[in-house]
């Protein structure tokens, strides 16, 4: 209680702000790949901070929160990579302002979709 509680609350607010930024990015970005960029990075860091703040405030929960954070850090990039690959495979176009698409060129060259 006391000072630890206040520090934990402040860290949690910082994490929540990153979660908010991820959502704003989700709305503002022009195509699915850019949305994934903000959706993966900002949420991973935001959750680490948010759960870290809770762990500082209640040390008895810290062990399970560590498991949760490890799980999120390991799975979040994997799921976004798999989803990006599936989206590209399904032919979701890149935004108009994109500069280059080497993967589409590579696929066209090899004669796969």
């Amino acid at each position: 209680m006391g000072i630890l509680h206040i520090i934990g609350g402040a860290v949690s607010i910082l994490g929540a702000l990153f979660l908010l930024l991820a959502s704003i990015g989700l709305i503002r970005m022009p195509d699915v790949y850019n949305r994934m960029q903000t959706g993966t990075k900002a949420t991973t860091f935001g959750t680490i901070m948010f759960l870290g703040g809770i762990g500082i405030a209640t040390p008895s929960m810290a062990t399970k929160l560590i498991i949760l954070v490890l799980f999120i850090v390991l799975t979040n990039p994997v799921s976004s990579h798999v989803l990006a690959r599936a989206a590209h495979f399904a032919g979701v176009p890149l935004a108009d302002r994109s500069v280059t698409d080497k993967l589409a060129e590579h696929r066209a060259k090899e004669g796969v979709q």
């Binding site: 209680m1 509680h5 206040i6 934990g8 609350g9 949690s12 607010i13 703040g53």
Partner: peptide
């Protein structure tokens, strides 16, 4: 502290 967590 509770107020901070409420804001978060």
């Amino acid at each position: 502290g509770d107020l901070l967590f409420l804001i978060a």
